[in-house]
Design a protein around this nucleic acid. Structure first.
Length: 555
RNA sequence: GCCCUCGUAGCUCAGCGGAUAGAGCAGAAGACUUCUAAUCUUUUGGUCGCAGGUUCGAUUCCUGCCGAGGGCGCCA
């Protein structure tokens, strides 16, 4: 029995007990209240629930008494072999191994879809991340969000959500002009403008556009600037796309900020024009000192924001508002932004836009803030001039090691990359630990096939070793881990799970042979074990896939 | 000054209000004529930054303080 069903069954029994005691199902008992968890110690059984502790308050009874009353009722469930009461009132559940083994066959049947659930089915999600200016290469500051955002998109999809991963291209404004001027100067061999973009990539872009436009020197400055800026923009955006693809990061929508500024209505208005009107219709806009303001303080912002300056020009905030309205108009149920800690000042503003647009800032929009990454303890910043580019980082450490190490910590946890560790092929490098476990499942499968261990007939009752119960319980937990990761927007939970699962697998491998030794005969346990082995490989593969990490068959 | 995030073993980090706070590495001791030893087994190591509060129960929730990082524009 899978943990979700088990939790539901326990909740049913507990609620029945509450009704008997109090005459009503108040409070009702939900599966979440069961708090089914895998105990930290093997002697505590396969699953533990603190339901008796949780009911103690409402029922006014001691947790131990409630646990004593529930114990025989839980033991009556077919898949449960034994229930022990421990500590202050925990119910420690040991499953019937002969039934537990069925999990392995079920996993092979589900294949790539094992781990999928329907908790978010019917929910459409817009997930925006990276969203770098197309004026330079992606650097380490974008790398964590790229890894995290892509994994989150995969996890949300596994939970049934319909996700659009979106990259917002800031291709409008003075930074683009400065970028164009910088490349133009490089192309013509002139002195760079003040505060120019610098670096080898500017020189390369300059060379490329000089070849593309041989008559550049004869054009007027304005004409040349437009040619160079647009060409360099598309070249740079292409480079960003390539970097992300090689990092296994996929975007469904590349949204150009320019779409917001062009006239797109019959009245000759842009989406930005319309956004001001729409917010005004909702009653959150006012005029003061010649400027147009949004009363964002209505929604928790620390000050109101100007959306249109006294000189008639829109602020960047106007584009943000128009962009949010675009997402709203495209019909998403939930809009998620992934921002670095250096942008956390925008959180209130973004939420205020949602509120001003008539949405619920607490429900319809989520802003995830992530801490920055350091390498070997050195803080990286543009000011310090020690920025590392994504491409260099990837070539140095490899996509797998980089994706995995960035994906195994929660976003709000400060993270230090240690290149020495990531390049090592030992146990202290978790990605190798997990990938090695997967490769081992394939080696074992190859050996089993060669020896005639086919997996048929499959008798789950022979999977009776302690390490087999541990492994099977871990495998059964995978769908719940993925669903939980999606619900909390924390894909790192999948990585941590895979490390635990790999440990369980290695311990099992150490204790139980799949292919008989020497000339020993093939028994029913060997057939069952190859099924368990292959099921483990499937789950490791599915989990690594959610993290955008490859699952090699040989290492 | 105000706001946000973080503070857990020597190091890198987990920990949905529950049991004696965990993992890997590092340190110590073991296991390869046997399916991949990139593995496994045993072991050393903690005032969960500090102080209060809520709770039957707090590393977890709330408040204050200390420390680290980041942010505060009619810039983009």
């Amino acid at each position: 029995m899978d943990p979700a069903s088990l939790a539901w069954r326990i909740a049913q029994l507990a609620e029945k007990y509450v009704v008997e005691q109090t005459g009503s199902a108040n409070p009702p008992v939900a599966a979440d209240d069961v708090a089914l968890e895998r105990p930290k110690k093997a002697e505590f059984g396969d699953w533990a629930t603190s339901i008796a502790l949780k009911l103690a308050g409402p029922l006014g009874a001691s947790p131990r008494d409630i646990a004593t009353a529930l114990q025989p009722r839980l033991e009556a469930i077919d898949d449960i072999a034994r229930v022990d009461i421990a500590g202050p009132g925990f119910l420690n559940i040991t499953l019937d191994t002969s039934r537990l083994g069925q999990t392995a066959a079920q996993i092979l049947q589900a294949g790539e879809t094992y781990g999928h659930s329907d908790g978010l089915a019917g929910t459409t999600v817009n997930l925006e991340f990276v969203s770098a200016n197309p004026t330079g290469p992606l650097h380490i500051g974008h790398t964590r969000w790229a890894a995290l955002g892509d994994s989150l998109a995969r996890v949300l999809r596994a939970a049934g959500a319909d996700v659009a991963a979106e990259f917002y291209i800031n291709d409008q404004g003075s930074q683009m002009d400065l970028f164009g001027e910088s490349v133009l100067a490089a192309a013509l061999g002139q002195d760079p403008p003040e505060d120019a973009y610098q670096g080898a990539y500017i020189a390369e872009l300059g060379k490329a556009v000089a070849e593309e436009f041989p008559t550049l020197a004869e054009m007027s400055h304005d004409e040349a600037l437009v040619c160079v800026r647009e060409s360099a923009y598309h070249r740079q955006l292409g480079a960003i796309r390539t970097s992300l693809e090689e990092f296994n990061v996929h975007f469904d929508v590349w949204f150009s900020e320019r779409q917001l500024h062009v006239m797109s209505t019959p009245e000759g208005l842009s989406l930005v024009d319309r956004s001001v009107e729409r917010l005004r219709e909702q009653g959150h806009v006012f005029d003061e000192d010649g400027a147009v303001w949004v009363r964002t303080t209505d929604f928790g912002d620390d000050k109101d924001r100007v959306i249109r300056r006294a000189n008639g020009a829109y602020t960047y905030f106007a584009a943000d508002a128009a962009y949010y309205l675009s997402k709203k108009d495209r019909g998403f149920d939930l809009t998620i932004y992934l921002l670095g800690a250096d942008h956390h000042g925008y959180v209130h503003r973004l939420k205020a836009i949602a509120g001003a647009a008539g949405d619920d800032p607490a429900v319809d929009i989520e802003v995830l803030i992530g801490q920055l990454v350091s390498v070997n303890g050195a803080k990286l910043s543009k000011r310090a001039g020690n920025i590392i580019e994504l491409d260099d980082l990837r070539e140095w450490l490899g996509t797998d090691a980089l994706r995995y190490s960035l994906g195994r910590s929660p976003a709000d946890s400060p993270l230090t990359l240690e290149p020495d560790v990531l390049l090592s092929k030992t146990n202290d490098n978790p990605v190798f630990y997990v990938q090695y476990a997967h490769a081992r499942t394939h080696q074992v499968a190859r050996n089993a096939e060669a020896a005639g261990v086919t997996g048929e007939p499959f008798d789950p009752a022979t999977l009776s070793h302690a390490t087999e119960a541990e492994l099977l319980t871990a495998l059964a937990d995978f769908p719940r881990v993925v669903a939980h990761a999606a619900e909390l927007r924390e894909p790192h939970r999948v990585a941590r799970y895979l490390e635990d699962l790999s440990g369980s697998y290695h311990r099992w491998y150490d204790a139980c042979r799949v292919t008989p030794k020497g000339d020993d005969p093939i028994g029913p346990e060997h057939h069952a074990r190859v099924v368990l082995n292959n099921a483990t490989g499937q789950v490791l593969r599915n989990g690594l896939g959610l993290l955008g990490v490859s699952a090699p068959e040989r290492m």
